[in-house]
């Protein structure tokens, strides 16, 4: 029998769908019988989902402008060598 501790250890692989066959079935059986682990699996899955959907943080224009300037200086120095 799988304990809650065993279940927790396998949780990432389970949610990332890295488990197949018997290992997966065992975890699924545990979830079906253990309300606590069901909640943990469900809320962890949603945690991953909300972060995946997070808006990309756009680089501020002034930061990008300074980066491009620094690069141009570097490239010019390399060309002149």
């Amino acid at each position: 029998m799988l304990t809650c501790k065993d279940f927790l250890r396998e949780l990432s692989d389970y949610l990332d769908e890295n488990l197949a066959g018997e290992a997966r079935t065992e975890l699924e059986q545990h979830i079906a019988a253990c309300p606590n682990c069901w909640v943990i699996a469900d809320t962890t899955k949603k945690t991953i989902r909300v972060y995946k959907g997070m808006d990309p943080y756009p680089i501020p224009p002034d930061v990008e402008a300074r980066l491009m300037q620094a690069l141009e200086r570097k490239m010019a120095a390399k060309q002149s060598k």
């Binding site: 927790l8 990432s12 809320t43 962890t44 945690t47």
Partner: peptide, 10 residues
């Protein structure tokens, strides 16, 4: 580390 991070965020 990923598992721990996910659990802490959860």
């Amino acid at each position: 580390r990923l598992l721990r991070a996910r659990l802490q965020l959860r």
